[in-house]
Design a protein around this nucleic acid. Structure first.
Length: 98
DNA sequence: CCTGTGACCGGTA
DNA sequence: ATACCGGCCACAG
């Protein structure tokens, strides 16, 4: 119950217009190695929460959904609307570095 | 209790 | 640059 909260806080701290990697978030939260768990938490987030799940990408800077998936398109759109440039599924260096 | 799974990561070839 | 591999940790069945 502790870890989840910290991760969510860290997610909420990502400024608009920037993105962060799963592992990076885990590390910032003080739990290095919890990258996968970050994904688990995001997946279980209730819809309607204020958590910017769309600003989370994998270590390669890519969206972690299949291109054909609906979620991919949605995330892509959200990122664009926040000023993040996405090229071929890859975000252009706007990584959140506190 | 044990096993498989996941919106992952880093090192090595 | 890409491909493969082992490690990672909580959670559901």
């Amino acid at each position: 119950m502790e870890i989840k909260a910290v991760i969510i806080q860290t997610l909420a701290a990502i400024p608009s217009g920037k993105v962060a990697a799963y592992g990076q978030i885990a590390k910032m939260a003080g739990y290095p190695g919890y990258a996968r768990y970050v994904g688990t938490v995001l997946k279980q987030l209730p819809s309607g929460s204020n958590i910017p799940w769309d600003r989370v990408v994998n270590a390669k800077g890519e969206i972690s959904f299949a291109e054909s998936s609906k979620e991919y398109l949605k995330q892509h759109q959200l990122l664009m609307s926040e000023g993040v440039v996405v090229n071929n599924g890859r975000v252009s260096m706007k990584i959140f570095g506190i």
